[in-house]
Simulated assay, not measured.
Amino acid sequence: MTQTPQNAQIVGKVEYREGDGANIVIRPGPVKVQMGQNDVTLSWVDEEVRGSTAIPLADFKRYVAEGKIKLAA
Rank of each mutant, 00 (worst) to 15 (best):
I69M: 05
K32C: 08
G21L: 04
G67Y: 09
I26W: 03
N23M: 10
M1I: 14
Y16K: 00
I55F: 04
E15N: 09
Q37W: 08
P56G: 08
L42Q: 00
G51C: 06
E15L: 11
A54N: 09
D39A: 12
V45S: 13
A65M: 04
N7P: 01
V25L: 11
N23A: 14
N38T: 12
N38Y: 12
G51W: 01
I55M: 02
G29S: 07
S43D: 09
D20H: 05
A73P: 00
I69R: 02
G19R: 04
V33S: 05
E18I: 13
L71G: 02
D59S: 15
V14K: 05
A72P: 00
V14S: 00
P56H: 08
V49S: 11
T53W: 00
E15H: 06
K13R: 15
W44A: 03
E66G: 03
V31S: 01
T2G: 02
D46I: 10
D59C: 11
Q3N: 07
L71T: 02
D20F: 01
P5Q: 05
R27P: 04
E48L: 14
V64A: 03
I26A: 04
M35A: 08
A54P: 05
V14H: 02
G12Y: 08
Y63E: 14
A72E: 15
V40W: 01
G36T: 11
V25Y: 07
V31N: 05
E47R: 14
Q9Y: 13
I24S: 11
Q37N: 12
K68M: 08
V33N: 02
